[in-house]
Design a protein around this nucleic acid. Structure first.
Lengths: 162, 162
DNA sequence: TACTCGATGCACAACCTGACCAGCATTTCG
DNA sequence: CGAAATGCTGGTCAGGTTGTGCATCGAGTA
């Protein structure tokens, strides 16, 4: 993992990422043809992007909705100051429906994204969450619709322009 | 895109997804060897998973932090009822730093995830967001640390168990 | 029992990968 | 200014992989 600041994408990097995002199954050779550069160049760029951590992974993106988890919700948790975050985090990590969790500023301490099969099922998941010692309060917000699905391409483009 | 309920993963599906997540660069043939099944089987499963939308994409996952956007924040927006969400959503979609946006229940109307190069830069992004007509209030929460990075594998495993 | 579906094993040609090389332009730096 | 370093190009090579089609086999079902 790279945390340096000096990472700079150029136009070719951005186009490569974009191309891979749109048609992931094409290989390096095909990329080089589409981008109009030599195959070795594409290979070198890709290796570098992965090495620098810009491309964190090429793995499959799973759609929770497609496997029956159609309800998304954001839950903020207040944690008892006494014990700290760690026990709660460990507890959350054991719940598959907890997709991610961040510590946050503001009146709450933890924000997590959870999914469930239905609103009824959501109750079960939340019960499971708050069953942890150290959680003093949980506040649930249901995501009604995804206005902008998770995306990074615009960011890549704008980072490459500079 | 499949929204049906009858999607059922079996153990092989889950192991395949897991394998691909861990070592994305291996091909179908290598998968079949690791999983102990015929190559055609892996091919058929993969095609089906993609076809059913369970695997939404194989594209590269970009790490915003690695390209200089180290600050993550969640912003909730209240929208003027008069005009509806659409103009605001369109405005947000034009800002690269807005990674995703959901309409939500509760006192706010929209929750979005944004990134920035620094806390100072975050101010710039927020100013850009609230410059839209129709936003009556914005509340910013900064993500201090990622306790649980986005993950779906545990969910896949638990879905396959049933 | 006959049928359908999914998995297996096999074979083929076409293709891609990783590795290597020499040449050339650009940039960096003493 | 000249030398070294860097990055891109276009090429080769062997070996592995892909997409495809086909016949077979077992399990579940009408």
């Amino acid at each position: 993992m790279n945390t340096g600041q000096d990472v700079q994408l150029d136009d070719l990097d951005a186009r490569l990422i974009e191309l891979l995002a749109q048609e992931p199954r094409i290989g390096v050779l095909e990329c080089s043809r589409r981008l109009g550069v030599a195959r070795g160049t594409v290979q070198a760029r890709l290796d570098k992007l992965i090495g620098r951590g810009v491309i964190a992974g090429l793995g499959p993106e799973i759609s929770p909705a497609a496997i029956g988890f159609g309800v998304t919700s954001f839950v903020t948790l207040e944690i008892s100051q006494r014990h700290g975050h760690d026990p709660v985090t460990a507890h959350l990590a054991g719940i598959p429906e907890v997709l991610e969790a961040h510590t946050i500023t503001g009146s709450s301490d933890l924000l997590c994204r959870i999914v469930a099969r239905s609103n009824t099922d959501l109750q079960r998941v939340i019960d499971q969450i708050v069953s942890s010692e150290g959680i003093t309060r949980a506040s649930t917000i249901i995501a009604l619709a995804e206005q902008i699905p998770y995306r990074t391409l615009p960011l890549v483009r704008s980072a490459a322009r500079s």
